[in-house]
Design a protein around this nucleic acid. Structure first.
Length: 950
RNA sequence: GGGCGAUUAGCUCAGCUGGUAGAGCGCCUCGCUUACACCGAGGAUGCCGGCGGUUCGAGUCCGUCAUCGCCCA
């Protein structure tokens, strides 16, 4: 022991200074003897220690791919979901990163070849938005004014300047990713890989161009994919418009009904009433649909109506899309501005007339499609150029004036909105590029179905299947400037040439003049190849060979579709191999009331602020402890404070060890210790390692955190440290000191993945070490360290101490008073146990002396324990009434338990059908309960005597 | 409308394969016993949402209803 106490360090000094270490190393001086005048502080100072620990890790290159890998190690690779360049660390990242970091550190300590790959996403629309806003604030030219090239240059400039702060912030959390391998989705190599995928998919027919309705974002003036659309419920109106029948047609329309719903009154009409939530789109109407079985309108199918305002003659068609129950049962059809209407139009052969521009303003001038069959009018001219909502009002006003507004009803309905712009999406007819997602989905489904990739929790596997089974073509072109420009060139006739470079495209075109498609790719198209792209694909790099497929993907449920499913599809299409073997999907971090954290609600907890206040370890431990699989976590600051206290507890246990000269002994053999308490805590440590590994292997992070907490606080601090105090004064002092040092070292090692900073700091604080803690060997011991005899003995002793304390407290024995303990009956095993551990009981239960007696002294309190009966002679000291109550409470509880057990054991079916060991267990419990009842009854009787006598 | 999930101590939640209901915080009573007051000792608190079923045995499995939440349309 006491190895470091004199002379030079037992290990060659580390090449890395520990600025947080006060002894040795710090100022370049050789290690000095212990300096009792400089004890550890009472609390861990996270603010100063964390940067120092980070610096030590970095100086050592501790997180480089393969660091600390043993020869022939298995690879463990994990990808950081690349945050947006514009991003900053929020609680969701903190949670996500903490879980990944735990896995990475755990595997690294186990000697696996760990690669944790970090990087950033260019995040097309989000970044373009941020930079545009910046430009406006600084009074610069707008995007359009400066032009594409200059704008993109600005974005790059901005990215260099302020992008990637999130990775800096991640270091505060302790993220152990390999920053030397940092990648960006717009890096040159990555860009080439993205284009290659496009070209490859194009050639294989997996990417195609199509003219169809897309979700158009009028704010950003770009197409977006289905996933980027949010359905928002809104209060709106249903307007009824009258479209006049052509050719002087009239019909009888039912207007009065009897109780059974039969028509009893009719009126003669020369018009059809259509109901709509979007009157402004009527300019593009090319039909009216009624349900084929709707008796009210059946006879009108095939006739035409005249579109008000426009004068276009449009047919009445029979289509099941028209719901007789909704509105008037007749619905206007605008194929160019509504997804359902588009379908109807396709089925019924109706024209699609686009009446808006890219900003969702009415666009009639020069609109040949529109004017075909329409009558020019002043009213129409007045609508041209109006915003869609202004146009709505104008049209309604005209309808009222002209008498074709039939009526208005209030209605709530669901309106699609852009998830970034928050404006209503306009279904818009354009040419876009699509990925044939259905084809790509098949292998992605198969890979999860046959277990090549496992998705946890299972529930999310279902979500994944459901989405892929019903997948729609993926629109990947965006009318933005920031992103990977689509590698397609067109000749004068509009024929496309897809190639990696313009030169190649020109060669394909036979030298014709070409212009490049101005659009860029959906951000998710490039992040979709994150696994391959970061490892150097399409080159056959050693990293690709070593780390692909990656081991685990840890990510939130909100990007299962956006990212996880698409990575599966794309990687499989490119290599035939899955991108990851396991996917762990975690839930959302919410505020303490369960609300989603959002800027507008102002309920954001900023992880950096919390780290400043409580330290990164506390934040990490909290997130880990709350990470029950698949459940959202409600984060409260109190909880974080609680786990900060936990760190302090560990710190003080180490401080206690230091004050008592417990130095790690490299030759310590945990199996060789002899004292019961030492054998017991060694066994507990063995159990912890097994529990912890099992929990981490199963992604049961909360189980891991709770096991650590229960061990460190509940076992080591509450009991072992207290037990060690008397032992330090006795014959086993040396063994106990060594065991204490070992136990604490094991705590540091096992806690390190979750609380890396405080453990690394303590590791350096306690002794000179050959290695950083983050590279310490993960132990392989387990339950073989458990000595059942020592375990049973210690638990019996602990139970006895607890009983005595409980009695003392309940009977208001002054906390400082020492009392005698009288042994009445004691089985041989228990007698030996007590004999061996007398000093522990004496100190922890505040016993004055041990006595033996045949019968309980008058006025004594009786304690019944398995294998022994004790008394505390407290006559005169105790509160008799309180004791009566205590006994009554105890007897009541035991009585209930015994009754339950008796009932069970009297049940013939139970005896016949339950497994033998269960039956035996119940019998043993009944016996124990009955024995205790006897003892307590006797005690109650004596107490009654005492009360009568007194 | 379709799918998924939740309902357990005052609060926030664990409870994996059915076999004595747990944790943290909060609360109450004591306590500066030299590791720790970011602490220690002790204590109180549960028709495990309702109903029905399977089982020797159900918080745990099945059905159903209610309430809440999320995703998709």
């Amino acid at each position: 022991m006491a190895l470091a106490s004199i002379g030079p360090a037992p290990f060659p000094a580390l090449s890395l200074p520990f600025p947080f270490r006060r002894r040795g190393g710090m100022s370049g001086r050789p290690p000095r003897p212990r300096m009792p005048e400089m004890p550890m502080e009472k609390t861990f100072d996270a603010k100063t220690a964390e940067p120092a620990v980070s610096a030590a890790w970095e100086a050592a290159g501790a997180f480089r791919a393969g660091a600390n890998a043993r020869p022939g190690a298995e690879a463990f690779s994990i990808l950081l979901p690349p945050p947006n360049v514009t991003g900053s660390l929020h609680m969701g990242h903190a949670f996500n990163h903490t879980l990944m970091d735990i896995l990475a550190r755990w595997h690294r300590m186990r000697g696996d070849d760990v690669l944790w790959q970090p990087g950033l996403d260019h995040a097309g629309i989000a970044t373009q938005m941020v930079v545009e806003r910046e430009l406006a604030r600084e009074g610069n030219l707008s995007r359009r004014e400066m032009g594409r090239e200059a704008f993109v240059a600005k974005v790059w400039e901005w990215k260099e300047k302020s992008g990637g702060t999130i990775l800096e912030q991640s270091r505060r959390l302790g993220d152990s990713f390999d920053l030397s391998r940092n990648r960006f989705t717009m890096d040159e190599g990555f860009h080439d890989a993205v284009l290659r995928v496009f070209v490859d998919f194009y050639r294989r027919g997996l990417i195609y161009r199509g003219k169809r309705l897309v979700n158009w974002d009028p704010h950003f003036e770009t197409a977006i994919s289905d996933l980027e659309v949010e359905q928002v419920e809104e209060k709106g109106h249903l307007w009824r418009l009258r479209y006049r029948l052509e050719g002087g047609e009239t019909y009888r329309h039912p207007v009065a009904f009897d109780a059974e719903g039969r028509a009893t009154g009719w009126e003669e009409r020369d018009y059809l009433v259509v109901a709509t939530t979007r009157p402004e789109t009527m300019l593009g109407d090319t039909g009216v649909a009624v349900h084929p079985e709707d008796e009210r309108y059946r006879h009108l199918v095939g006739r035409t109506v005249r579109l008000p305002l426009v004068g276009r003659s449009i047919p009445i068609v029979a289509d099941a899309h028209a719901d007789p129950e909704k509105g008037t049962g007749a619905v206007k059809i605008t194929p160019a501005h509504d997804f359902n209407d588009w379908e109807v139009g396709q089925r019924q052969g109706l024209r699609a007339i686009n009446v808006m521009d890219t900003r969702a303003r009415i666009a009639l001038e020069g609109n040949a499609d529109f004017w075909e069959g329409a009558d020019a009018s002043e009213a129409l001219a007045g609508l041209d150029g109006l915003d869609r909502y202004e146009a709505r009002d104008a049209i309604l006003t005209l309808a009222e004036e002209e008498g074709w507004l039939d009526g208005t009803d209030a209605e709530t309905h669901v309106v699609p909105h852009g998830d970034r712009s928050k404006v209503a999406i306009e279904p818009f007819l354009t040419d876009q590029w699509y990925v044939d997602a259905a084809t790509l989905a098949r292998p992605a489904l198969a890979a999860v179905r046959d277990g090549r990739t496992r998705i946890l929790p299972e529930r999310d596997e279902k979500t994944y299947f459901h989405w892929l089974e019903n997948i729609e073509p993926w629109c990947i072109s965006r009318q933005l400037w920031w992103g990977h420009q689509i590698p397609v060139w067109y000749d004068e006739d509009g024929a496309p040439y897809c190639a990696m470079t313009e030169a190649e495209a020109r060669a394909q075109a036979g030298g014709k003049a070409l212009t490049r498609d101005p659009d860029v790719l959906d951000t998710w198209f490039s992040s979709g190849i994150w696994p391959l792209g970061t490892l150097g694909w399409p080159e056959e790099t050693p990293e690709l060979e070593r780390y692909y497929p990656t081991s685990t993907l840890v990510t939130g449920f909100d990007i299962i579709f956006f990212w996880v499913a698409r990575m599966m599809m794309m990687q499989l299409a490119l290599t035939g191999e899955v991108p990851f073997r396991e996917v762990y999907i975690h839930a959302l971090v919410r505020d303490e009331k369960g609300k989603k954290m959002s800027k507008s609600l102002g309920n954001i907890l900023d992880p950096i602020e919390l780290i400043d206040r409580y330290g990164a370890d506390a934040v990490r431990f909290t997130l880990t402890a709350m990470a029950a699989m698949g459940r959202d976590l409600k984060l409260s600051e109190e909880r974080i404070a609680g786990y900060r206290n936990f760190g302090t507890k560990l710190w003080n246990a180490a401080r206690f060890a230091e004050m008592n000269d417990c130095q790690p002994d490299p030759g310590f053999d945990p199996e060789a210790v002899t004292l019961t308490a030492n054998r017991w805590i060694v066994g507990e440590t063995g159990r912890l390692r097994e529990t912890l590994d099992a929990a981490l292997a199963a992604y049961r992070f909360n189980d891991a955190a709770n096991a650590l907490y229960a061990h460190v606080w509940g076992k080591v601090c509450d009991w072992y440290v207290e037990l060690a105090k008397p032992l330090f004064a006795g014959a086993g002092a040396a063994e106990t000191r060594a065991t204490m040092a070992w136990v604490l070292d094991q705590c540091l090692i096992l806690m390190h993945p979750v609380m890396p900073f405080i453990t690394e700091a303590l590791w350096g604080e306690i002794a000179e070490r050959g290695k950083l803690l983050c590279h310490a060997d993960w132990p392989g011991y387990g339950a073989e360290l458990v000595d059942p005899a020592a375990d049973a003995e210690m638990n019996w002793i602990i139970g006895l101490i607890e009983d005595i304390r409980s009695v003392r407290a309940q009977l208001h024995v002054p906390a400082g008073a020492r009392v005698p303990l009288v042994e009445l009956e004691l089985a041989p095993a228990q007698a030996e146990a007590l004999e061996r551990n007398r000093p522990l009981v004496e100190r922890l239960a505040r016993i004055e002396r041990f006595e033996r007696a045949e019968a309980p002294p008058r006025g004594a309190i009786t304690l019944a324990r398995e294998g022994g009966t004790f008394c505390l002679p407290l006559a005169g000291v105790i509160d008799v009434a309180a004791e009566r109550e205590r006994l009554a409470r105890a007897l009541d509880k035991l009585g209930k338990e015994a009754a339950g057990l008796r009932g069970k054991l009297a049940n013939a079916a139970f005896l016949a059908r339950a497994p033998e060991d269960v039956v035996d267990e119940q019998r043993a419990r009944l016996e124990a309960a009955e024995a205790e009842i006897e003892v307590l009854k006797a005690a109650a009787a004596r107490l009654a005597d005492l009360e009568r006598g007194a």
